Simulated assay, not measured.
Amino acid sequence: MNHLWMSGADLMSHDDTPSMSDDNELWLLGCRYELPDANARRMQQDILEAQTDDMFRPRPTDSTSSHDISSSSNATDSKTSNAAVMSLLWPPDFYADFCSRYWMTYRHNYPPIRPSHYKTDIGWGCMLRSGQSLLANTLLIHLLSRHWRRVTPSNPSWKTYVKITHWFLDELSPRAPFSIHRIALLGKQLGKNIGEWFGPSTISQVIQ
C-alpha cells in the first residue's frame, strides 16, 4: 500500500489527497476505488514483503552455475506468479488504472549528458523524474483522456501512447524533447549545474 501510494504521490495535489481514515477506499488521480476485505489486504502485504526480499537476491553472472541459473529461473517464475496474484488482490479497475500511469525513476547507462560525463541520475534526479512523471501523465490524460487504459497493443490509441513514451527517452534527440538530457541542459540555463538537485521552482520553469 505504501509503495503504491508513494509511487503515485507525485501525481496528486495535496488538496486531492483523500483521507486515510477510510480503510475501504483507495484513490488515484481523483478516482475512487473500493479496497478488498482485510484478509486480502494482509495477504497483499505478505506478497509485497516477499517481493522486497527478492529484490536483494544475487543476480546471475557469466560464471553462474547451471544450478544458480535454475534457481534464478524459479525466482522469476515466482515473481511472475506474485504479480498475477497482486492483480487479483487489488480492485481490477484500480490495478488497470495504476498500470496505465507513467512512473519515471532513476536510470543509468544512458548516453552522457554533455558537456558532463553523467550517465546516471541516481542521487540527484529525483525532482527531474518527478517533473517528467507529472508532464507525461498530463499529456497522457490530455491526448488519451483520464479513462484510457494500457490494455493491449492492438488498441488504436497505442500509437499515441508509444509516441508520448518516446518523448521521454533518455537521449538528446528531436524525438525526445522531454528527456532528462534536455531537462538538465535547460536547468543549466537557470543556474543549475548538470548533476545538481532541482527544486520545485526550477523544474516548473523547465517544464514551462
Rank of each mutant, 00 (worst) to 15 (best):
D170R: 02
L190H: 11
S116A: 10
D77T: 14
T52N: 06
A176P: 00
H181I: 10
K192H: 09
T52I: 14
T80Y: 12
L128D: 01
P18A: 05
T64L: 02
F94I: 02
F198E: 00
H67E: 14
Y33S: 02
V85P: 02
S19H: 09
S133M: 05
Q189H: 12
I113P: 01
P156S: 05
W27L: 06
L186H: 12
K159E: 15
D23V: 12
R182D: 07
P60K: 07
I194R: 07
Q51C: 08
V206Y: 03
Q132R: 05
I203N: 02
S130T: 15
S71D: 14
R182I: 13
S13P: 01
L190Y: 06
P200A: 06
T64A: 15
N74D: 12
T17S: 02
T105E: 13
M104E: 04
R149K: 14
P18C: 08
A96M: 05
I183C: 03
Q205N: 14
R149P: 01
Y110M: 06
T120I: 02
S19F: 07
S70F: 12
T76Q: 11
M104R: 08
T17H: 04
F94C: 03
H117N: 14
P156L: 04
R59H: 08
N193F: 04
L185T: 07
L186I: 07
A83S: 10
L28G: 04
C31V: 13
D62I: 12
I122C: 13
N39S: 15
P177N: 04
S130C: 12
P112R: 05
M104A: 13
P177H: 06
L172A: 11
G8N: 08
A38L: 13
L11W: 01
L169G: 10
T202W: 00
H142R: 15
H117K: 12
H147C: 06
L29K: 09
N39L: 09
I141C: 02
W124V: 08
L172F: 12
S63T: 15
H166K: 15
T64D: 08
N193L: 10
G199F: 00
H67M: 03
S78G: 05
H147F: 05
S72T: 09
F168R: 00
G187N: 00
K163C: 14
D77W: 09
T120W: 01
N74P: 02
F98H: 09
R59Y: 07
N2D: 11
E171V: 14
R41F: 01
L4Y: 11
I180D: 01
P58L: 00
T76H: 10
P156Y: 03
K79C: 04
N155T: 04
L28A: 08
T152V: 12
S179E: 04
H108V: 04
C126L: 10
D22N: 15
T76N: 09
E49F: 11
F168C: 06
S87L: 11
L88S: 15
D170L: 02
P115K: 00
F94A: 03
